[in-house]
Design a protein around this nucleic acid. Structure first.
Lengths: 151, 151
DNA sequence: CACTATTTTTGCGTTTAGCAAAGAAAATGT
DNA sequence: ACATTTTCTTTGCTAAACGCAAAAATAGTG
């Protein structure tokens, strides 16, 4: 009886596809409104204040190539949003971290991006919000492990 | 007490963001494996056999500009996957539809893309699949209406 | 110290995307 | 009837996003 699975898979495929398009549009709008390129916004969004990252770490967590990350970081560095120093222990490594200016911006960015989602979520019940959280959480886990196995 | 909302919004923001990156990687892999550009796959995925579409229809449903669509269709046309004819009633309109070759491909594409998701979903319970469906469905609706209002 | 492995950067080509202007056809006003 | 405006698509141009392969720099190893 995995007719059921097939049907569910089909529906979820369709829905995820649509969600993706919408969220991409949403990200693009948000980045533009804040004077950032989409790639820059995506990168800033994952660096935490105080921590430092290698190019590779950022690349893998963004699902991009290291060379691509070099370019994105170039941009952020030019805007003085991140520092880039050679690691002392192993000078092959770069250590990328937020400048003060970067920290301020990222703080604002995260705040406002969450607010945007708050705006979307404010008219539904708390239970429905939990349903969204649980559903997306499950899906994210599945896609993520699938990717690891198939990449 | 909309502290709760803020917290939920924050968590959903984070999760959606991660899901997005993974699904983009997934789409890219799938398109590449089928010898298609990502944009082409995305376009083919929304055209149904037997129907015909204007450039604008495709553009809006893909959240892209008409000019971008012209180029994507150029590519599909060159590969003889779609036909492009002038509408007889109003010759400003283009009527884009799948060729036989296109129909065959799209059928296979949809089948295999759903199978890929079936593969991901096969090890969880039917109830959890419903949770995913419900969660993503809710979210998709919210983002979609938000976009309409804010674009 | 030569050789190999790792990390990042550079050069280059491809893909994705939109804007503004042009082109073509229909609708509208006078 | 025909000039004007509107609508739909395409073209020319530019920017952004991205990865591959080679180079550069450093570390580790026989």
């Amino acid at each position: 009886m995995d007719m059921k699975l097939k049907q569910q898979a089909s529906a979820i495929t369709e829905l995820t596809f649509d969600l993706l398009r919408c969220c991409e549009a949403k990200e693009k709008m948000f980045a533009k409104d804040h004077g950032l390129k989409v790639a820059e916004f995506r990168c800033l969004r994952i660096v935490e204040a105080g921590k430092s990252y290698s190019v590779q770490e950022l690349a893998t967590s963004m699902h991009l190539s290291p060379s691509r990350l070099t370019r994105i970081i170039d941009g952020l560095f030019a805007e003085k949003l991140v520092d880039r120093v050679q690691s002392i222990e192993d000078r092959r490594f770069a250590k990328i971290s937020l400048t003060n200016k970067g920290q301020t911006l990222v703080g604002k960015l995260k705040e406002e991006y969450a607010d945007l989602h708050g705006e979307m979520l404010k008219d539904i019940s708390s239970e429905d919000r939990d349903k969204i959280y649980n559903g997306i959480s499950l899906m994210q886990g599945l896609v993520s492990t699938w990717l690891v196995r198939n990449a």
